[in-house]
């Protein structure tokens, strides 16, 4: 284990480190984000870019998509949510186990974007709680990476349930 090696190297064999349990759990949780990509629309193209080799989401421990909501930590909602798909989205969210976080990827999921009409949901936060909003239509990969780093910060700082 990396941490133990560092601690032994710096302080010697019989040393130990004290930390808050919350901080330790947060630290481990934030680097093993298993995502469930709920990809519907244009933003999916940028999600593909972010998760493949060029932008390499793996650096943040967040590359591995789990295609079952039961195994995922982060629901990443990518693309416009219409009223027809809305019940499916909330069902997927309910199936995820705690602790869970939600990223709204793209302006359609944040506010509805420029689709302000009879068919679209005006922001997924009217359906499920959202942790990080990533604006942009679609957001550039750099913006997405910043959003994910902000989520990691949030996970580190929050009160951990275990």
């Amino acid at each position: 284990m990396g941490l133990k090696r560092i601690v032994t190297r710096v302080f010697g064999d019989d040393s130990f480190v004290t930390t808050k349990l919350d901080a330790a759990i947060g630290w481990s949780r934030k680097y093993s984000l298993f995502m469930y990509p709920f990809v519907t629309a244009c933003c999916g193209m940028e999600y593909m870019s972010v998760s493949s080799s060029h932008y390499d989401l793996d650096r943040f421990g967040a590359a591995f998509p789990r295609f079952s909501p039961r195994q995922a930590d982060v629901l990443i909602v990518v693309g416009t949510i219409s009223h027809k798909i809305a019940p499916v989205l909330s069902r997927v969210y309910e199936q995820m186990t705690e602790p869970k976080w939600v990223i709204a990827f793209g302006v359609c999921t944040c506010t509805g974007g420029f689709y302000d009409n009879y068919a679209t949901v005006q922001g997924i936060d009217t359906l499920i709680p959202v942790d990080i909003y990533i604006p942009g239509c679609p957001p550039r990969p750099e913006t997405v990476i910043q959003g994910i780093m902000m989520l990691q910060d949030k996970i580190q700082k929050q009160r951990q349930e275990y």
């Binding site: 219409s82 798909i85 068919a119």
Partner: peptide, 11 residues
């Protein structure tokens, strides 16, 4: 189908 109907033609 129709899960991504975003009303292009109406907009």
């Amino acid at each position: 189908i129709g899960y991504l109907h975003r009303a292009f033609e109406k907009s």
